[in-house]
Structure formats: structure tokens, C-alpha cells
Design a protein around this nucleic acid. Structure first.
Lengths: 164, 164
DNA sequence: GACGTTGCTGTTATATTATAACAATCCAAG
DNA sequence: CTTGGATTGTTATAATATAACAGCAACGTC
């Protein structure tokens, strides 16, 4: 079986396993932290994980409505806010969209690679990038509280596809 | 006289000089590139430069209206699009707002330090950060076309102010 | 188990940011 | 001068996000 990848997932990977793993990790993390992963929140997390592409809030809203869940924008935004707080999803600022967090276990300053060809996103957690940022900021006496690092470009799969 | 700073400008710096320098650089750059820095575009650039804080598109729109310029959202967004293309302003994704480019002369991958206390923004052009990103991306076979690096935190001035 | 408190969800309304589409105008090149 | 392309004006609307309040469910305390 193919395992969920921390970078660009294989085009044919066990995505159901991917989602299950994410939901299990979420249950555990919320349990430990005394946070309530309600049915709605769990469902939104699952919807976010349904692809490795970022999902917009209104796409999630439509999905909820489609399955009969009474929903309006705040329904989705509140669930997302919770999931962000718990470190279970990330927000991509350039896209106004959300992806599941690849490493909900540990605290981390994430960086994202966004393939503008296929739309997939890979989450990096590269300490070297983080360090370079900290150093650059410190040199100006600036104290960092949060980083947004989003890199656009072309993923390996799409580069191969474009050559052939 | 205090000179325009590439990082956080002194609280009392020659801001008029700052703006004039930016407009002059813009004229030159557009001249060289055969781009038309029209009255409207020049005026929008000037409004962006009126502070070192990021400005939203609708704030610019209000400013234009206030001075009698017939304006609607497309007026401002089109001017901003032009200025972005020419490398004269940057867009801050986290804030949906715009700042003047500190180094319109040269091509560069910019990083931004956003002070969440005073709202000012400093533009970095730190090759080490750029390099770390390139390396991290290459390691996955990812080709970078654009970077968004926005760091939130507390600037030196505000740290001092908070201590006293 | 009743009760109050807290947090979660539903609902309506609205704010904020951004773009589509087409008409009018300007301007530079021939 | 006129013609073609770029720029601006104008109207309408799309897409993203939040405020405010009401109802309800879960949780601890007695």
C-alpha cells in the first residue's frame, strides 16, 4: 500500500487511509487538549482532507449543504477557526483557501509549495527556512510571532508531464 | 536630514523625500520599460506611499474620491495591477493591502516584516531567506516561480515602547 | 435529576474585497 | 487626420468574511 506522503502525494495513493489518519490524529490531539471535535467540526475537517488541493470556505459550505446540513457562512468559518486553532488545518493566504495539516502532532512553522499547474499543495516544515527567517528578522530587532511562507511554482509530476 | 530607510523608517524621517524618491524612481523605471505612468497611476502610487503602512484598495478609492477623481473599484484595482506589474508596489496577502516597493530599481524576491502593534511594514530582500527557500523547494524537485513571505511580529520601536 | 453556566450552532443581515463586461476617451504612430 | 490599441469610466455582480443575536446542547455543581 502507498503511504500518505509529507510532500506531493503520489497520484495514486491510499487517500482513504490519508483521511482516516488525519481524523484519528485530530481526535487524539483534541482529546489531549480538552478541545471538542464535534460532529460538524469533524465533518468539515474530513471535507478539507478530501483532496490535497486547497478548498475554499464556500466550497465547503456547498458540500455541507449538499448533504443536508443546515449551513450558512458562519457555520463553516467557525469550524475552520477551531481547526486552525487546533493546528489541524492551515490557511493559504494567497488562495483564500484551506488544507489539512500534514503534521498535526507537533508544533511547527510551515511553508507551502503550491503547484500552479495541478493545484496541489505540499507542506514543508523546513527548519532551515524557518532559521533563515528568524535570523533575518532578528538582525533588525524584529520579534517573530507568525510566518506566512507560500511558494508558487511547478511540482515534479507536472514538470514531467509538460516534457512529454 | 533623516534618510528613507530600507527597514523600519525612523518615526520622524523625511517622508516627503521618501515619496518624491519613490515617484522619481517610478518615472525612470517606466520610462526605461516603455510603460505609461499616467496621472492616475502616478497618483495611486503616491497615495500608497503616503504611509509606510499597507493600504487597502478601498482606502485608496476613498482617497481618490475625496479629491474629486471619478472612481470606482476597477479604477484602483487596475492602477494597482499596473504598479504591481512594474514592480512599484507589493501586495501583502495576509492583509489584502499594498505597500510601495522599497527597491524598485532591481528585481528581487521580497520578504515582509509586519508589525502587528504599529502596523508598519518593512521590506526585506534577504538573499539567505530566498536561498533557503530555493533549496527546500529543489530538494522536492519543485520549481519556484513566485514567493510570498510575510512575517508577523513586533518591530524594535514597539518592543521598546512596550517595555517603558 | 434540576439548575445554571458555558460553549456550540442556526439564522439573518451585512461588510469587505475583487472582477466582469461594455462604453467612452485618449494618445501615439502612420 | 485617422485609425488602432491602451486607458479610463460606469454599472453590475461575484467572492470572501464577519457581526449580532437567538436557541440549544453539554457539563459541572448541588
Amino acid at each position: 500500500m502507498t503511504v500518505a506522503s509529507p510532500v506531493f502525494p503520489a497520484l495514486t495513493h491510499d487517500h482513504d487511509g490519508c483521511v482516516r489518519a488525519a481524523l484519528d490524529a485530530a481526535e487524539q490531539r483534541c482529546g489531549r487538549r480538552g478541545a471538542r471535535l464535534t460532529t460538524l467540526r469533524r465533518r468539515v475537517l474530513e471535507l478539507v482532507w478530501n483532496s490535497h488541493e486547497p478548498v475554499g470556505a464556500y466550497a465547503l459550505l456547498d458540500a455541507l449543504k449538499a448533504e443536508g446540513q443546515a449551513s450558512a457562512p458562519p457555520t463553516v468559518y467557525r469550524a475552520l477557526e477551531f481547526l486552525l486553532e487546533q493546528g489541524l488545518v492551515h490557511r493559504l493566504e494567497r488562495l483564500n483557501a484551506f488544507v489539512g495539516c500534514a503534521r498535526p502532532e507537533e508544533a511547527h512553522a510551515a511553508q507551502f509549495l503550491i503547484c500552479t499547474t495541478c493545484g496541489r499543495v505540499a507542506e514543508l516544515d523546513d527548519p532551515a527556512i524557518d532559521a533563515a527567517l528568524q535570523v533575518g528578522a532578528e538582525r533588525l530587532g524584529f520579534t517573530v510571532t507568525h510566518q506566512t511562507v507560500e511558494v508558487e511554482g511547478c511540482c515534479p509530476d507536472c514538470q514531467r508531464a509538460l516534457l512529454s
